[in-house]
Design a protein around this nucleic acid. Structure first.
Lengths: 248, 248
DNA sequence: AGTATTTGGTATTTATTTGGTTTAAACCAA
DNA sequence: TTGGTTTAAACCAAATAAATACCAAATACT
């Protein structure tokens, strides 16, 4: 039972090797073809493969053989299967590994935000129009309404900060902050969200948000700056706490 | 439907597999189509999508399926929905940095640098390694050697500031600063260089550079911060002077 | 100001799709 | 024989899709 896996996993990485040498019949051959189709990008990440019965027709074989082939792909960690839904690709192309978000640590992100966001506050206080303030208010209501769920709160929080960035009326600043936000929303942080975003912490963040909105609307630069520094310091301390293995 | 693939069965040696074209189907496929339409600009920011019942007719499917597809788009943060009003696009299209450079004014650029570079100085003082300092020293010598020609000085100046960014040991910061630098080197500023970068101004900038290098090497944060603010203030004032139509 | 329409939100029921499992029969190579 | 593989058929459980009705918020119209 183990022999066929060696054949698959050994020459696995980039090249299709030569499957014909092994008399490409049966489930092993079908598994090899499907694997090759996936690594070559015929089926992208999270895309659905044809249903088992469909594949059986396509390959002119029985469903049992298809199932055996898919079982091997599943053991290789290339696909995930869900009853009633289908078989989905979990294999990541190598090119998708090189994103900045993947090599950015939470502390690095906070360091960058500590540079950009206070400046955003300064420019927002100086340049925000009534329309900008109104957009910010809507974003504030949205993030406050999302206080119950860490996931939606996280998205709404990003939108609020982006609305604040738009108050600067500086397109380069908005563009840069969008890039920061993209890094921020990368799924690398998913696990951390759960442990950090407890209700009381969300409440504290939202108090910061509301005060930021009020101070920008009132053009109170000093108080707004105090708040954004407080906000980011809190976030930084939370991150350090979240990665700490032992309490102090 | 499977008939066409008969001769492509798995016996054939040369890449027989053509099981493609299943990605579309059900709510997942509809979500993918709508997502593509949005990112390709068919529906712009804040624009309204057709109503659910309309989409159900268009896609020849049930409203429930449409809702499921829209729910996925909402989870991706691409769309926002309001009762009685409709579904609206919240996805912001990224323009390439070449385009961003075209719509960025010199003052906007300085405003962004005023946020980022002081933070770079703080992190550089804290994190720079001996190797980083050495790279910075070489960049300093290069920019000082280029004092004679505004064009080469401008390039060497950008390299010096990038070397400083690399002292932060923060990859996200370096990446962002590279993007800022690209905006900076856009030929939009070519005309301005000639009028601003007179020899005495270059000398002043280089004095800033040398002092920045020394203070970072000596880990003197306060003096380094004073210098970078001085540096950027000088640049801002030069820009305002350059775009001023009448002398004061 | 009040009414009617449109729109997204919710719920329910039924049908279809899809992977998971079992059983039985046939075939092949060691 | 023995063990392994393939084919075939039937059924199960979970997820999705479809059809329908009704609600609530926002908007348009009178």
């Amino acid at each position: 039972m183990g022999q066929e896996y060696q054949e698959l996993s050994y020459h696995s990485d980039p090249l299709p090797s030569l499957p014909e040498a092994v008399s490409v019949g049966g489930s092993a051959g079908i598994a090899a073809q499907l694997r090759r189709a996936i690594v070559e990008g015929a089926y992208g990440l999270n895309e659905r493969l044809p249903a088992e019965r469909e594949l059986a027709n396509l390959f002119k074989t029985s469903r049992g053989t298809i199932r055996e082939a898919l079982r091997r792909l599943q053991e290789l960690g290339m696909v995930d299967r869900q009853i009633g839904s289908g078989t989905f690709v979990t294999y990541r192309q190598f090119s998708e590994h090189t994103e900045i978000a993947d090599v950015t640590s939470p502390l690095e992100l906070i360091e960058v935000r500590l540079g950009i966001e206070p400046q955003i506050v300064r420019l927002a206080v100086a340049n925000a129009t009534a329309m900008d303030i109104e957009r910010m208010r809507k974003a504030l209501l949205k993030v406050e309404a999302a206080a119950g769920d860490p996931e939606t709160f996280s998205k709404a929080d990003a939108e609020f900060h982006l609305a604040m960035a738009e108050c600067t009326r500086n397109r380069l600043m908005v563009w840069l902050y969008q890039l920061v936000n993209e890094t921020r929303s990368h799924d690398q942080w998913a696990a951390m969200k759960e442990s950090i975003l407890v209700p009381e912490r969300i409440a504290q963040y939202n108090a910061h948000h509301r005060h930021l909105y009020n101070m920008i609307a009132k053009r109170n630069l000093d108080s707004a700056l105090d708040t954004i520094y407080d906000h980011l310091d809190t976030a930084r301390n939370d991150l350090v706490g979240a990665v700490r293995t032992r309490p102090n």
